[in-house]
Amino acid sequence: MGSLTNNGTKIDGSDVPETEISSSAPDDTSTGNERDERATSDRAPVALPAHVAGSGTLDRLVDTARDYAKASTAENTNKAYVADWKHFARWCRLKGTEPLPPSNEMIGLYLADLAAGSGSSPGLSVSTIERRLSGLAWNYVQRGFALDRKDRHIATVLAGIKRQHARPPVQKEAILPDDILAMVATLPHDLRGLRDRAILLIGFAGGLRRSEIVSLDHGKDDTPVSGGWIEILKDGAVLTLNAKTGWREVEVGRGSSEQTCPVHALEQWLHFARIDFGAVFVRTSRDGKKALESRLSDKHVARLIKQTVLDAGIRADLPEKDRLALFSGHSLRAGLASSAEVDERYIQKQLGHASAEMTRRYQRRRDRFRVNMTKAAGL
């Protein structure tokens, strides 16, 4: 499946927009100091005390501890935090200062610059600015400093930005049952089509994040990077996931027919791809006839959703660019939350949400006026 549509529009593999760059920080070549800082960042979290002499055993333990420290946050989060620090360091140098040690006054000015924008570059959204601030706080901790986000130079500026620029969150459109069936119908009947059919149906019925889909292994402890494993039973499949909120089990029941059954689609893929160990969803050969060993990237799920949305003609009333922007990996989770006619607590459990309020954010067509307070009050 190509990454370009018929008219040349690129299908982005990520749900997150490209990092917005303030016009006050052009994309120039990294200086030697910046490279040194990034290298220091990689070494900073774990190291031997200065008074302890290194040895082969201790050095190996340091490397192991660094790997664990790196795994404490998601890979995409780590990449975002590295980009946040690089952007801030470049901004500081353009303003004639240094990023270390932390200056609450300069960080307040940095936030103001991000919000105001400059020239033809618009200001960043409040959520992006808050993410940048979290990235700076994390980076300072890695370098042995503490950033006081409650300091008035930071807190009051951020509060003003929220007051003036806050907007309701832009939600991705839900993929509903008729949509998912139309999308599945566009897939070929080769090995690649079997795999992608299983991805879409399991992702929808399980309410899974795209990272959860591609991190699944066939069995427990099959690979070091496993994010969970599957167990296929008579009545369905149980997915054990190491999710953001900790380990949880997701039950995916069998469908009303083989054509719509996510468990049957998964069984077909595993059988014909001859997968009985390791990653469940792997790459295929160019001709789509042979399963390879390498695990799929979560970006494949995003590309798959966008491409099949186009091929199925979903929201054909909109221009292609707008249709691509409407749907993402989260559209599968939102689709399940919006279409499952069950008690809300079951949807909350399936999605792994800690609160019912978070689940309601995913329900795009919830019956908002089921309880009519106007009539209940006698009007």
Rank of each mutant, 00 (worst) to 15 (best):
G8R: 09
I11Y: 01
I11S: 02
D15P: 09
E37H: 08
R38S: 15
T40Y: 08
P49Y: 07
P49R: 10
A50I: 14
G56W: 03
G56H: 12
A65E: 13
R66C: 10
K70L: 09
T77W: 02
K79R: 15
K86F: 03
H87I: 04
P102R: 08
I107C: 07
S121C: 02
L124V: 05
R131V: 05
Y140A: 02
Q142D: 11
L147M: 10
D151L: 01
T156S: 14
Q164P: 00
A166I: 05
A166T: 12
Q171K: 10
D178Y: 00
G193S: 11
R197M: 04
A198V: 09
I199R: 05
R210P: 00
S211M: 02
I213S: 04
V214I: 11
S215K: 05
G219H: 12
G219N: 15
G228S: 09
W229N: 13
D235E: 15
L239H: 06
L241R: 10
G246K: 07
E249Q: 15
V252C: 06
G255W: 00
C261N: 07
V263P: 05
F277C: 08
F281K: 05
S285G: 04
E293N: 14
S294E: 14
D298W: 00
R303Q: 10
L304K: 02
Q307K: 04
G313H: 03
R333S: 02
L336M: 10
E357Q: 14
E357M: 10
R360K: 15
D367I: 05
R368S: 12
F369W: 02
F369A: 08
A377S: 15
A377K: 09
G378Y: 07
